[in-house]
Amino acid sequence: MRFKLDEEVYEIKKAKNSDLKKILDLLVNAAAWLKTKRTKQWSYYLTDLDGNLEEILHSIENGATYLVEKEGRPISTLTLENIPSVWDLDLWGENVHDDVVYLHRLVVHRNHAGKGIGAALLDWVEKEAKEAGKKSIRFDCIANNEGLNTYYQRRYPLKEVAHIHGRHNKYEIIL
Results as ranks from 00 to 15, higher is better:
43 S>L: 09
17 N>L: 01
161 V>E: 04
125 V>W: 05
119 A>R: 15
53 L>Y: 06
28 V>H: 06
132 A>V: 02
52 N>Y: 14
146 E>F: 13
171 Y>F: 04
130 K>C: 08
149 N>E: 00
3 F>I: 10
14 K>T: 10
169 N>D: 12
8 E>H: 08
175 L>N: 12
118 G>K: 09
88 D>G: 05
60 I>C: 00
17 N>P: 06
118 G>I: 01
120 A>V: 03
14 K>I: 11
79 T>M: 11
45 Y>P: 08
148 L>Y: 09
63 G>W: 00
65 T>S: 07
110 R>D: 09
54 E>L: 00
138 R>L: 01
127 K>Y: 13
156 Y>W: 02
153 Q>Y: 03
125 V>A: 05
133 G>Y: 01
77 T>N: 11
152 Y>L: 03
145 N>R: 00
34 L>H: 07
55 E>F: 01
166 G>V: 04
40 K>P: 11
131 E>F: 07
48 D>E: 11
85 S>V: 03
17 N>R: 15
67 L>C: 06
60 I>R: 08
105 R>E: 10
19 D>Q: 05
108 V>S: 10
112 H>F: 15
146 E>L: 08
140 D>N: 11
164 I>W: 04
165 H>G: 12
92 W>F: 13
21 K>F: 09
90 D>M: 06
66 Y>Q: 15
155 R>A: 11
24 L>R: 14
38 R>G: 14
102 Y>L: 02
137 I>K: 13
136 S>T: 04
55 E>D: 12
168 H>Y: 10
